[in-house]
Amino acid sequence: MINLLHSELYKLRKSKSYKVAAVLSVLFVLFTYALFGIMQNMGTGSGNPGTMEIVQKLSGIGIMDIMKQMFANCNAIIFATIFMCIFVINDYSSGAIKNFVGKGYRREEVYLAKFFVTELGAVTLYLLVAVSVLVVGIAYFGTEQLTGAFWTDFGNYLTMQILYLTGYTAINVFVCAMARNMASGVLISVLGIMMFSGPILNGLDYFLGFLGADFGISQYWIMSVISNCPVADIPSGFIVQSGIVAGGWLVAAMTGGMILFSKRDI
């Protein structure tokens, strides 16, 4: 297992998709701030009533709002997803996976090594985004916002988002191992998991409500907790509930992935 991790870490270090995802993530943070700057500058001029309303709302924005924009609105996760899909599926599409299986390791170990290093890559991408938001935010807003409460909110929010990311990564690696094809893997991950899962589950909630059920299944979906996590003063109830959701998906998807990989022909 150690050897496999050693090898996967080397691949991560050499991965072009990882480097590209890292650069794009930072560029997207800069783009978000630039867009914010343009909108704010518009506030000094004149505009139609609708535009001015948006500008007035923007004037109260701080670093934590940009954090929310990057994480809750799935901007950071989309770059992480592209990296994950390429990093995992490349082993299948190139046939390289054949050189790891049947070499004295259990298949579960081969899967887990890939999974752990993919998690590591995704988490470091998240950290890079958070640091970029912070550094560019300080350059943009100054240090006035950096109070004790800010650091608490920043740390808590980032920790929660990283916790959710681990669950999401488990699902994504499982999907990629199942798809084994770059096009379908990316398509299922980006469209199926990220974009359409929310509306579909909300629709199911509505349907269950219509049937008289007093619970919604969307709150147990990882993308829901990613979006619904408050940026400040996270309630302890939400921490526990979302932690269970993330942990549940992590364990379920990781176990499912190991079983799938151990049984399937290569």
């Binding site: 050897n3 496999l4 050693h6 090898s7 080397y10 691949k11 050499k14 991965s15 072009k16 490349n90 082993d91 190139s94 046939g95 390289a96 996976i97 054949k98 050189n99 790891f100 070499k103």
Partner: peptide, 23 residues
């Protein structure tokens, strides 16, 4: 077996390095 499992974005040496570590 079938296609050689190679990482196209790496050099020959880097490819072997991946497997040296794995093995």
């Amino acid at each position: 077996i079938e296609a050689p499992g190679l990482y196209h974005g790496m050099t020959a040496k880097e490819n072997l390095e991946v497997y040296r570590r794995a093995y």
